[in-house]
Design a protein around this nucleic acid. Sequence first.
DNA 1: GAATTTATTCAACAAGCGTTGACCACCGCA
DNA 2: TGCGGTGGTCAACGCTTGTTGAATAAATTC
Lengths: 200, 200
Amino acid sequence: MTAARGRGRPRLDDTGDDKRGQILDAAREMFAEKGFERTTMRAIGTRAGVDPALIHHYFGTKNDLLVAALRPEIDPTTLFAGIADRGTGVGREFVERVVGFWEDNPQQRSRAVALLRIAVTHEQVADRLREFFIDVATTVLGDVARADDRERRIALVVSQMFGLVLARYVMKVGEIETATAAELGRSVGATIDNYLLGDL
Amino acid sequence: MTAARGRGRPRLDDTGDDKRGQILDAAREMFAEKGFERTTMRAIGTRAGVDPALIHHYFGTKNDLLVAALRPEIDPTTLFAGIADRGTGVGREFVERVVGFWEDNPQQRSRAVALLRIAVTHEQVADRLREFFIDVATTVLGDVARADDRERRIALVVSQMFGLVLARYVMKVGEIETATAAELGRSVGATIDNYLLGDL
DNA sequence: GAATTTATTCAACAAGCGTTGACCACCGCA
DNA sequence: TGCGGTGGTCAACGCTTGTTGAATAAATTC
C-alpha cells in the first residue's frame, strides 16, 4: 500500500476537491440531467471550470469518463442489512430503505438516475444495470421469496422497482414524486410482498 | 370533404406505400431502437431508400419528423371498451389487453417504445407521455378505483405500467420479456387491482 | 540548477450532423 | 404547348462534436 513515488510532480488525489473531483461531479450531474448524448465534453468542462482537454487528460475518451463517473462507490448489501429478519413487511422495509437512501444521498441518486437515463439508449449500460438490479433483489430478497417461480418473482419485483424510479425521478409523476419514503414503502411494499409470497 | 385540388401534380397519399410512408416507418423503427439523438437523418434516409433531403421536404426539421412519426393513430378507449363491467379482475384484463395489443401490433409497439426511449431525455416528450398514461388510466380505471386517494391510486398504477414496459421492451428483463400476455395479466393485474381497491 | 513528471490551457483538426438551395423529372390543368 | 406544383437527388454550407498535440506552469527528486 506504499505509494511508490517516483520523480516529478506527484499525482493529485482522486478524492481531492480539486479539478479532478469537480470534473467527476459535473459529469455525474449532467449525465443524470441530460443523458449521455446530450451531455457534451465542453459543457462538463464549463461546469467544472476546466478546459475540455483536461477531461481527456484525466479520464480518456467520453465513454471512459462515463464508466468512471458511474462506477458505484458503496456496497448495497450494507444498506439492506438484517432486512430478512422481519417475517412480513419485507417489501415495505425494502422500498423505504431504497427511497430513503436516495433521499439522503443526492449524489448517489444522481448516479442512479444517470445510469437509468443512459441505459435506455445504451445496450451495454442497460445490461449492467439490469444485472445489478436483479443481483441486489436476489441477494436481499431471494431467501424471502417463495421457492416456486423464484426467478419470476424477482423479475416482477425488479419491474415494479424500475417503474418506481422511472415515475419518481424521470417521468416525474406528481403523486409519486411528492410521496415520502414511508408512504411509498407502505403502498409499493405491499406489491413487493405479493410478488415475493403471493400467488402469481 | 371534397379534395380541393389545385393545379399541378397531386400530392401523394399519406398512407401510400411510397417513399413518404417508408420514411415514417423507418423513422419509427430507428427512434424505437436507438432513441432520438443516436438516430440520424442520414440513417433514416438510408433505411427508407431515400435522400435525406427528401425527409426535410416532407416533414421539415428532425423535431417535426419526430412529432409526425410518433403521433398516435388510434383511440385507446376502443381498446378498453367494456372493461369496467367486470367487478374484480379489472387489472388482469387491463394488463392483458395492453400487452396483447402490442403483441399484435408491432408498429404500435415501436411507437410506444420510441416514445419512452425519447421521453427519458426530452422533457417535453416526457410530459406528453406522462399525461397520456395518466389520462388513459384515469379514463379506463378511474371509475373502478376507490374514491379515497384516487389520484394516488392512478399514479401507482401508472408507475407499475411504466415499470412493466421498461422491463419488458427496453431493459429486457428475461422473465418479463418471455412471459405471455396472459401470465403478465395474472401477476401484474393483481397489483393493479390492489392499487385501485386495496388499502394504501 | 537540471531533470522529470504532472497540471492545465490553447488552438486546431477531422468527422459527423441537420439543413439548405439549386436543379431536373414528372404530372395535370388550361 | 406551356405553366405551376410536386417528387426526388445532388452537392455543399455552417455548425458542433470528440479528440489531439504542442506549449507553458508548477511541483518534486537528484
